[in-house]
């Protein structure tokens, strides 16, 4: 079983994140990733940027699926929070 913390580490090593949070059941994972680098990028480019950091893990099958929300710090500020 893959620990979400491990995925956080992989991503954070390859991309400067203001905030990163990953939830998952060991098979499927959902990530919230906040990075300044996303500014000026469309959705596809942002996810391609994140995929770069975990490409090897996806190719090897270690990581099967990662759904993600990719936000700039400004977008994250504006986003309504739960709770």
């Amino acid at each position: 079983m893959l620990d979400p913390k491990e995925i956080e580490t992989w991503i954070a090593q390859g991309l400067a994140c203001e905030h990163i949070a990953i939830e998952g059941d060991g098979q499927h994972f959902a990530a919230l990733i906040v990075s300044r680098e996303f500014a000026g990028m469309n959705r596809v480019k942002r996810q391609q940027r994140v995929y770069q950091t975990v490409r090897g893990k996806l190719d090897s099958g270690e990581l099967h699926a990662l759904s993600m929300q990719t936000l700039t710090p400004e977008e994250w500020q504006e986003k309504p929070r739960d709770g």
Partner: peptide
């Protein structure tokens, strides 16, 4: 597509995205 996962959607020859992007859009 330089996109490591499936599904992938193409509309009029252009890559739109995967499942997350389809959902957001």
């Amino acid at each position: 597509s330089n996109w490591p996962t499936v599904p992938q959607l193409y509309v009029k020859g252009e890559f739109v995205g995967g499942c997350d992007i389809m959902k957001e859009m």
